[in-house]
Write a protein that binds this DNA or RNA. Sequence first.
DNA 1: CTGTCGACCTAATGCGGATTAGGAAGAGGT
DNA 2: ACCTCTTCCTAATCCGCATTAGGTCGACAG
Lengths: 341, 341
Amino acid sequence: MRPSGRPRQADIARLAGVSQPTVSLILGGGAAAMGIAQETQRKVMEAAEQLGYVPDPIATRLAAGQNNLLGLYTFTSTFPNEISHAYYPFLVGIEEESAAQGYDLLMFIASSTTGERPHAQVLNRVRLADGCLFLGRHLPVREMDRLLATDLPVVYIGRHDEFGDRLAYIGADYVSAGAAVVRHLTGLGHERILYVREADEAITSVDREAGFRSGMEECGLAAEVVRTDGADLTPDRLRAWRDQGITAVVTEATDTDAAHRALLAAAERAELRFPDDLSLATFGDPRDRAAGLTGFAVPRREMGAAAVRLLTKLIAGDRTVPRHQLLTCELEPGETAAPPR
Amino acid sequence: MRPSGRPRQADIARLAGVSQPTVSLILGGGAAAMGIAQETQRKVMEAAEQLGYVPDPIATRLAAGQNNLLGLYTFTSTFPNEISHAYYPFLVGIEEESAAQGYDLLMFIASSTTGERPHAQVLNRVRLADGCLFLGRHLPVREMDRLLATDLPVVYIGRHDEFGDRLAYIGADYVSAGAAVVRHLTGLGHERILYVREADEAITSVDREAGFRSGMEECGLAAEVVRTDGADLTPDRLRAWRDQGITAVVTEATDTDAAHRALLAAAERAELRFPDDLSLATFGDPRDRAAGLTGFAVPRREMGAAAVRLLTKLIAGDRTVPRHQLLTCELEPGETAAPPR
DNA sequence: CTGTCGACCTAATGCGGATTAGGAAGAGGT
DNA sequence: ACCTCTTCCTAATCCGCATTAGGTCGACAG
């Protein structure tokens, strides 16, 4: 019994009265089929059409090593409902560009495996695809290390220097964007700006703080930074900052938006309004981004598309493409920042 | 030349002094390896460990005849940013349940093919997977017909009786839900309720109207229905309805939400407020669903999950599962409907 | 008439692992 | 010593496609 009811090349061959390799030549390589009679090609194509032939990606891959599938692996331990919103724009870009490049998407599901090392199995399955994109704030180092030891092309979405040149990535230029926002604020006349970040040491947070510091330094101002988990951000504390002379506060969007949310909540309870009583800027896109929020936007969609382009080039064997790219985040002047009073 | 530098079972076999099938037995099936001497197992395991063996998933799949891939094909171009919101909950359910069932998702991309019959090619590629889910308000009948002629298990998300029993589906019980909303309204005291639907003849719209009519009939009231494309829904018309004695208006959510939006816009311009001047209920989830909207919610996530369960059963060869299932939509009392004044 | 050269196609084989049929070797019974 | 079971492992194949090394046949030159 044939395991699959699908037609194979052998079926086409029988129907067209030729051999299986001939079918493979005709269907597979347009160029390689040069030396085959037009008539034969027509017969084979017709037979294939008639049977509704679709090459088996597994067999194709085993024999030749390519199947026009891009893997997409998302490291999300949390269940998707919430987090999804943040990832969605990436997916949009990825899907669009995959379509343009003629690839279909193979989504690997982290939560499908349980046990102490949930990613291990999936990282093996990943090799089904011609190459794989990775998405997620934190990534399991050991598994990724093993994967990088193979020759599977991989692109990570988000900056990640831990593996040096071995791991290609598409990131957002948080440092420049952060500095630009600071320049915008100082341009408005602010001189004491406080950066409120989360305790998390994710690379994005680190880069953003670096951007803040670099912007402040550039303007000859002292960088003031506090960390918060959200809970300790009380209305009193906010008022105290203001009384000390802070005129602008900068915060960051993360997967939880803890700092950003806490700040907004504290401001409301303290009856402080942006930008009347205090200026506010936010690095990145908080989930509930209000229309007029000052800050910068992460070009997620473009990042997704760029990642696909990079990956397809790697798959094609291009060794000259830059393996690390940082995309520019656009400054959003917004209305929550204004000259200090 | 060996394409990959990685060790294979044959290498282990050589090192351990056994045959490749023996290695396969020991490493592959814990149960099947019962009849193999402990000593041999130890040697093989050791050799595998020493060489750092990792099974090639591709070869595994080829030999096993199944690839644990579920296809997902979306008819509507998935990614104008807008549409995404409507489909996302389906995807969440699909992904969760796929994970639970041990499948990965293969997303086929409609826009990757151009030309007059964009779905034709993709519908062939779809057969790469062990089975496929389809999602979309309108589906190309001819292509689907061809696909159903094959033995590929297929599940459509959304009711669709055009193919009779040939096409399995998971739908939402719009008829019952619509009737329930009507009962809710009549329970509040409404007697003249107007259903404002779109001109579109999609099955969902048809079912919803049926639900409305059935609810009205059940309550012994006359069903009044108008169609709109949105543009002809003027403030004056709305006022006229009210003056004629209509106390409640029911509309529906679609991929464009044309009727729903137009109604809200007209009400605002007519300075009519819900539920003070008029009661409002909406069938389904408009994209900008406000918190207190009266109506019913489509259990999208559950539908996605149910579709995956159905599909995996079909793949497993289960011929007894019901091929058509309608899931219950929950009534949402909301606050845009109140007793008439 | 023979040799040569293309043009066109097929036989054979590999990819890496799963599966099935079956054989060799040793244990136990008579 | 002979036969029957077990126990444990291997030979042979298959999965579906790609690739390489020929092989056949007709045309055309010599």
